[in-house]
Amino acid sequence: MIAPINDQPALRLSRVTKSFGPIEVIKGLELDVRRGDRHAVIGPNGAGKSTLFNLISGMFAPSSGEIMLNGQSIGGLAPHRINRGGLARSFQITNIFHRLSVFENLRIGVLARHGVRYGLFRRIARMQQVNEEAAEALARVGLEARAHDLAGDLTYSEQRALEIGMTLTTGADVILLDEPTAGMSREETAQAVELIRSVTEGKTLLMVEHDMSVVFSLCDRVSVLVYGNILATDTPARISANREVQEAYLGQEAS
């Protein structure tokens, strides 16, 4: 496979470290996420997956090292700046606006994409473009029937779908999903996988996932994170055949 010359990775982390007090959680991590890939991060509990996501999305600033989004350094920027740079994330624990309608949840994201941040002098009902896009987002995640219900009243898997929808509305081309299928039944997981596949078409996806069948069916590449370092990055098939990985992670899971 020959990559175009100007094809810089969507996301590049070099020598990134993060310490909480004396504990170093991320230890000089190197990771490239290629543009257009669906890339999974797997690893045992406590390996630093959530910390990694929080560093990339701006919840925490890295202690050292560099994080590049589309060629721009974003390490240590505020979350809203990173979002405006084209990266959006979902959370491991569902993170939506519980007391707003489903439609309204999505519309807040659409407004952000349109740069309407302090819109005080127009009626939102008349903002046709925004409302249409919110309706489109609603359709994309299959929640049309629940548009006017409170988000807090949705079922768990509907809330996860809504959160993925919100993540997309901001127009980001790099999407981070933190365990999007955690806690779902097999059937719900299959639906979620299809949803993620369709909505990340043409975008770059980085996701934390425990379910290897999800990783196999969805992702182009897999990185294994163990004790704050990337052990290996490769295709799912080769990763599962990798002896080192099996010992560090997969074997441990099986036992």
């Binding site: 505020a78 939506i96 606006f97 002098f121």
Partner: peptide, 19 residues
């Protein structure tokens, strides 16, 4: 207004608003 709706979103979940 859009900002009025954002105000409600802030009440519900400030972290989400930032992200």
């Amino acid at each position: 207004t859009p900002f009025g709706r954002l105000t409600l979103a802030l009440r519900d979940n400030e972290q989400r608003v930032r992200f």
